[in-house]
Simulated assay, not measured.
Amino acid sequence: MTGILDSVNQRTQLVGQNRLELLTFRLMGRQRYGINVFKVKEVLQCPKLTVIPNLHRLVKGIAHIRGHTVSVIDLSLAIGGRPTTDIDKAFVVIAEFNRSIQAFLVSSVERIINMHWEAILPPPQGSGRAHYLTAVTNIDNELVEILDVEKILAEIAPVDETMDANIGAEIAQAQMDKPTVRRILIADDSTVARKQVERAITSIGFEVVSVKDGKEAYEKLLEMASHGPIDDQIALVISDIEMPEMDGYTLTAEIRRHPELKGLYVILHSSLSGVFNQAMVERVGANSFIAKFNPDELGHAVKTALIN
């Protein structure tokens, strides 16, 4: 298991080709789940956990890993399942989301699978655990569920969504000097993340066009362009990177290739981290990258977009 991520640094060429690699695992049952390898730092046998008073009910305990103290979240319990048992035989997936390190307790870890984002689909309507899903896929004729980790983390440690009022005033001043349409397209497959961005953007007086993946975003932009110049209808695009059917890198590349869309300002806004991000931003032609989720940084990025 220690070698399962040895080649992660060689996997960055998949980004920008609408491809990803999923690390698959199981919780308390037969259902398989997946997480993007780029978010995973390490997988290891569950270490000794320390239970301290007043822990959140979803946190199984505290672990000391590589000189850091991390909370170990029981992923099965977090999505409404049974608490994880046989801790000594369980594993922890160390991942980085939204600028912080988390440890997720899982029953077993299986393998890494190379996939195309087109094979990652939105969850079916009416699925029982859709409340915690961002996507599903089929591997070896078996349904694999991709969890909305951002929703789980928001329930454990809610983030401050309030944007500094001064930023709104600065944006208003910038628009007096250079008027633009006050509408922004937001693409994100996580309901929680999408709502966070929507609230931040509407708080500074913008209308929001909200979609759940890159494919839907591109189709919406094409529809707008068919009715007239895109700059008269939308100020900029804020897009997640990881999304079913079409990721944010591919969306940006498609925008740059289209003669009627290529001038759009694109901000990539993602929980993904890593040194490859800036290189990929430049490669696909995005204007900027922001790690989730800081409303003030998002506001400053919008202001920069409007000034430019």
Rank of each mutant, 00 (worst) to 15 (best):
T191M: 06
A135N: 05
F206C: 07
T69C: 09
F25W: 08
T162L: 07
G205L: 08
N54T: 12
N18D: 12
E42M: 08
E216A: 11
V281I: 13
F289W: 04
A169H: 13
G16E: 04
I238T: 01
T252C: 09
I113E: 02
I62V: 15
I167F: 09
E223S: 10
L75H: 06
T304C: 09
E145T: 05
G34T: 04
F91Y: 15
A279F: 09
L105W: 04
I186P: 01
F25S: 07
A157Q: 12
D160L: 00
A193H: 00
Q102C: 15
E254R: 11
R99H: 14
R111K: 07
D86R: 11
R82C: 15
K303I: 05
L298T: 04
A63D: 08
G34H: 03
N36S: 10
G274I: 07
G299W: 01
L261A: 04
L147T: 01
T2C: 08
Q13T: 15
G228D: 10
L121K: 04
K48E: 14
T202P: 00
R183H: 00
P123F: 06
L221S: 04
R19N: 15
Q31D: 09
V144M: 07
V92D: 03
K215R: 13
I94P: 01
F104P: 01
D213W: 04
E219V: 00
S71P: 11
T85C: 15
A154K: 02
A130S: 13
G126R: 08
G80L: 09
L14W: 06
S190I: 01
R99A: 15
I101R: 13
P179H: 14
L185F: 10
Y132A: 14
Q196P: 01
M280F: 02
V275P: 09
A279L: 10
I52T: 14
S288E: 12
E150T: 12
M280N: 03
I94A: 03
I87W: 12
G67W: 13
D240N: 05
K215F: 12
F97H: 05
D140N: 05
L222H: 11
L14A: 08
E142L: 12
H227V: 02
L222R: 14
R66T: 10
G214H: 03
E110W: 03
A286W: 00
S270D: 08
F289E: 02
E96Y: 00
L298M: 10
E207T: 06
Q10G: 11
P158I: 06
A95E: 03
K212P: 00
S273D: 12
H227S: 07
E297I: 06
A301M: 04
P229T: 15
K39A: 04
A157V: 09
F289H: 06
L22Q: 03
D88P: 05
G214D: 05
L221T: 06
H131T: 05
A174T: 06
L268Y: 03
R66Y: 11
A279P: 02
E242M: 05
D231R: 04
